[in-house]
Design a protein around this nucleic acid. Structure first.
Lengths: 160, 160
DNA sequence: GAATATCGTCAAGTATCTTGACTATATGGA
DNA sequence: TCCATATAGTCAAGATACTTGACGATATTC
């Protein structure tokens, strides 16, 4: 092994963007691993990002497009995949002949239930690691930040 | 416009994973936009993720592969792109005929300097929005979380 | 009912990753 | 000194997650 000078204390980032990125990636990876381990092999982070915008009672596909910060074609492709996996289904919108409604299948709802359980487990592990007070302070700050931005959707608890 | 019942208060997520994801995405987008606006049109989030692992004094390519949590081929492809953009250069490692050293070009160092400036601007805007105390509490919690995980690299301030 | 906007789809291309196979060099003994 | 094995990097092919552009069908508006 060639160990040399470039190997000494190489300074790595420590700013809010880096920390958020690390924490987010870590959470995503942990969650996705647990979901796949729970039998939801179709789960991916991109799909999770979309599912997070689909409430349990379903939504119009066009509403989804407004919310997710990606192109409508990307939304459609993700929906295609999720529909093919049997997680979601698309129905014609009885009130708009152009539109479609997206809703969870039984399989999708099962996944949401497992997802809720896993989220609580991860949250507990975080609280164990850094303490309830620090955890709460972090959530508080993150909520406050998000409230300040607001690209449309701002609401209360639920879903993936 | 067809406004119907599915349009009422659709519950959206509010758990730590969602909040981290939102905050991280928001920061990344703001930073990348500012970088591109500053003339660094080659900048992307994936590239930023790699650059964050390259200290200002350069590194061995293989050290980079250990740090970034992606395959060596992915690292190589990102390096190919960054080298083609003239942001980085790869030199033979004089102490290891197999290896290469990665270091910033003048253009790369200029980008790092602008990046530092932009990071400070974003940080200030965050502090303005949620207050210094909440901001510090958030950083503290994020650092504590990261320290608990540790996939190798843990160090002090610097770089993208 | 004609102009315009919205909803969804199809097609094609790009960025960012993956795994597998391979070459070249280094290292650590017999 | 030579051989076995590990390490550093590359090449090729493919998957996933996006993008923009073009389009048809239905709604809305005047």
């Amino acid at each position: 092994m060639v160990k040399e000078l470039d190997e000494r204390a190489e300074a790595l980032p420590d700013h809010i963007g880096w920390r958020l990125w690390r924490a987010s990636r870590s959470w995503q990876a942990e969650f996705a691993d647990a979901m796949r381990a729970a039998g939801h092999g179709w789960f991916s982070e991109a799909r999770a990002g979309l599912l997070g915008h689909i409430p349990r009672n379903g939504t119009r596909q066009s509403a989804l497009i407004e919310r997710a910060a990606i192109s409508k074609q990307a939304v459609q492709q993700l929906l295609d995949g999720l529909e093919a996996e049997g997680v979601l289904e698309r129905l014609p919108n009885p009130r708009d002949g152009r539109g479609k409604l997206v809703r969870y299948t039984r399989k999708g709802l099962d996944a949401l239930r497992d997802g809720d359980r896993i989220k609580l487990q991860i949250e507990r592990s975080y609280i164990d690691r850094i303490g309830r007070q620090r955890f709460s302070a972090m959530m508080d700050a993150l909520r406050a930040l998000d409230a300040g931005q607001g690209d449309a959707s701002e609401q209360a608890p639920e879903s993936t």
